[in-house]
Design a protein around this nucleic acid. Sequence first.
DNA 1: GCTGATAGCCTATCATTGATAGGTTGACGC
DNA 2: GCGTCAACCTATCAATGATAGGCTATCAGC
Lengths: 202, 202
Amino acid sequence: MREKVEIAASASQRRAVDRREQILDEAQHLFLRHGLDGVTTRQIAQAVGISQPSLYAHFPNRDAIAVELCIRAFGSLERRLRKVDAAMQGAERLRELCRAYIDFGLEEPAAYRVAFMADIAMDEVSGTHRGLEAGLATFSILRNAYGQVIADPDAAELAAQTVWAGMHGLVSILLTRPEFPFVERSRLISAHLDLLLGQMEP
Amino acid sequence: MREKVEIAASASQRRAVDRREQILDEAQHLFLRHGLDGVTTRQIAQAVGISQPSLYAHFPNRDAIAVELCIRAFGSLERRLRKVDAAMQGAERLRELCRAYIDFGLEEPAAYRVAFMADIAMDEVSGTHRGLEAGLATFSILRNAYGQVIADPDAAELAAQTVWAGMHGLVSILLTRPEFPFVERSRLISAHLDLLLGQMEP
DNA sequence: GCTGATAGCCTATCATTGATAGGTTGACGC
DNA sequence: GCGTCAACCTATCAATGATAGGCTATCAGC
């Protein structure tokens, strides 16, 4: 009897989870094309094929959807970084990690914005620290890579944060102010990487 | 006669300009306290003491107000930079320019957000390139300072853009993700400046 | 089988937002 | 005086995020 209850519950739960995932899929697709502020709950609902209020059975509010997508975005970045992390060593690894980070931002701008630039209420109640946790997990790849090059953990942490901030600056300003007369992009990226990693290769 | 007409016109125009400035003052004050998205046109109108639709006699839409404040923000940053620029020379000047930039971002976060982080439609019609021009004027201070240290203008431009991006990264991530466990702030800033300016002092 | 509970969804409706339409008023040139 | 016009108002829109309350099909328990 107990077993039956659990099976039923899990089946129902699975359906609910499916629908939730479906909502996130469609939301991600829409965000990708129209940006975080260019998508309404009604558009999401229509894409899923349900009514707009039905979204609120799965998410407490619109921001909660954004937080979920933020976590997905970190997941995408994390995969890119892990691939590089596993394939390389030392200074080269650091440089390629940075390059992978920048590539992620420029190739998946919507994801990047949600992850690092969106004004999501990360300090509120609903599962918001999960976004922070996802970010920390991703960041730890960079920190660990620095840990293998810099002995002092504190210094490695500092270096990783500094370099991360530097990369974020380039990516975010390229995304936010594309009308600025930037130097040719690949040159800018290379120069930026040289600057950020210059300390490593004297 | 002609003179009278002109006087009257300019007086009327002056009144209109005053009201416009008044709107901007109140909007700036409100943006400062509640952020760009936390202020409604009704709040601005109430602060000024006029009806909400009356705002549209002075600005085509809400974004136009934001663009004006963006220009004001650049003005504030520009004053800070010019003060440093006039008082120093060489590598020290570069470092203090960067520090002034970072201080601006941290001390006037609302202004910084409007200037560098807001998703204002900078490519639209209404006086939007004025925001870009203001930004370029401000940036030119940094570029010129680099021009006095790096001979090749192209290289100076590249260096200035790179360093600017690096600073922007630190400021913007501190503003956007304050919940991240950053290293102690003054250490982080110093390390970041060391990194960005390291090339200058071998 | 029947039945009561419940998950999942719907329609109807809110309050708030940015924005528009159209009328009123008061100053000013003639 | 009188037309003109700028500045402003009230009334109202459409769109948006969010809530209230009701319908229905599934399913455990008898």
